[in-house]
Amino acid sequence: MTQILAQSAMAECWACDTQNDPAAYLCAACGKLLPSDSTDYFALFGLTHRLTLDVAALEKQFYRLSRKLHPDLYTRASKEKRQWSLEKSALLNDAYRALRDPIARTEYLLETEGIRLEEQSRDATDAARATGTDKQQVIPPDMLEEVFELNMQLEEVRMAAASNSQDPELMANLEVAEKNFTAQMEALQQQLESLWAAWDRALADNDAATKDAAKQAMVALLNRRSYIRNLVRDVRQALGKS
């Protein structure tokens, strides 16, 4: 492992002296790599912050940009340019990874809006560990009853497993629960896409109130999704599927 140097900002193209937008990663005039300080994933692909996007077009653009930024093209260049290429190429790959995945894309957008889902969750985990308590997840109110029932069943399965026995009826119930939660996950996907559409419209109209409402709805949806995902994981584990 080695230490890398911090980059310096520059707007003028080192190759042809053209003045470029400080956020541009390639020179508008000569197409050479620039040491831009822009880190916005959408901007890198030439996109606005719309959430509905064409993944096939995204891949095409990813390949096109890879051919410009990849370190393989700069092995004979100066140390400085090699470093820029390394950083830009990493940014491109990070961006593509996030944008092509619906959930990661939504989380990234919310992050650019100042909402850090990932960190909230990690802080909660750390705090729970530090105090020696179980991490408390907020159970969506409408799921309270369902989750209570499920937890009872999961506990029974664990106890049965400890005494090397198996209750077929219980297992059948869990199979039903798995199907049920998996279906809910799919439904959430549909709902997420309609929230994207709401966000995209609000973005185009520059409608702050609707944008806020869409953001809050997306946060709630992602939290619910992560809760259900954990349930599916637990059920699959109890069923010996993972």
């Binding site: 990849h70 990493a90 790959n93 990070d94 990690r122 560990r129 530090a130």
Partner: peptide, 30 residues
């Protein structure tokens, strides 16, 4: 365009791993 075969993580409180770069991420990755 190659990938990193193994996830990269940091040891967090209690000795658990907090993943920072997932396996099979295209490299360079940050």
């Amino acid at each position: 365009l190659d990938i990193t075969p193994l996830s990269l993580g940091i040891e967090a409180l209690g000795g658990v791993v907090a993943r920072v770069i997932q396996r099979n991420s295209t490299i360079p990755a940050s």
